[in-house]
Amino acid sequence: MPETKKKLLEVKGLTMDFGGLRAVDAVSLEVSTGEIVALIGPNGAGKTTFFNCVTGIYNPTKGEVLVHPPEKKTQRINGFKPNRVTTIGMARTFQNIRLFHNMTVLENVMIGRHCRTTTSIVGAIMRGASTKRQEQETIEKSYELLKKVGLVNFADEFAKNLPYGAQRRLEIARAMATDPFLLLLDEPAAGMNPQETKALDELIVRIRDTEKIAILLIEHDMKLVMNISERIYVMEYGKEIAQGTPMDIRSNPRVIEAYLGEEADA
């Protein structure tokens, strides 16, 4: 079905200083509905810091982070706490996996439902009909999500016992449980073998196509990025050095230089 693209996230001139160090320098970026957008760059370019500013973990020094939720008013979310950002509808994963290790796989996903459910302390004690219904719904939804990422067989396993690739997928399921319209993935393919990367690749596209969730991902793995993303932003030393389609980026001399420079260092 044809749909008009609508802006979801709009970042203007975002800057983040740590003491004297400028980690992110006037970076602008946009994500619209139905898009997969990638943010790439060599190590230490400030990608994760950018993510942290957008998701409320840091409060940016300068710039604007505007969110246009579908069917709701635009909000400027600078300085919002992470939980508010998530509640608005932007959920994230972490570069160095941060699961709740001593909770089961299913419970991990259920936490994602927290901000979409309302049971209070009193409600939990009374355990009335609506609480029970909500709990059951949470369980059902979480199972469905586990199915989507192919982890339903591990539902009752502790998260810490999952293999590495599965942990990454669990993080995605947990983030999806918050009913986001935009998913922010921080190096989802890090540490995966080519096979796992390919499966992830398909998963991300599927999330976009069937769940109608837009995706912004940070990635190191150029191949993954080139295959699936519509648009790419490139950062180096905190600055945005290029943006465009994968084709544009591939032939951009500055990007080549930045990446070759890094290869030579490694």
């Binding site: 998530t86 941060r98 994602g112 947990r174």
Partner: peptide
Amino acid sequence: MALREDEIACVAMG
């Protein structure tokens, strides 16, 4: 429990 396991992830999950 989630708060105990990982405060940052917990907050990031809303």
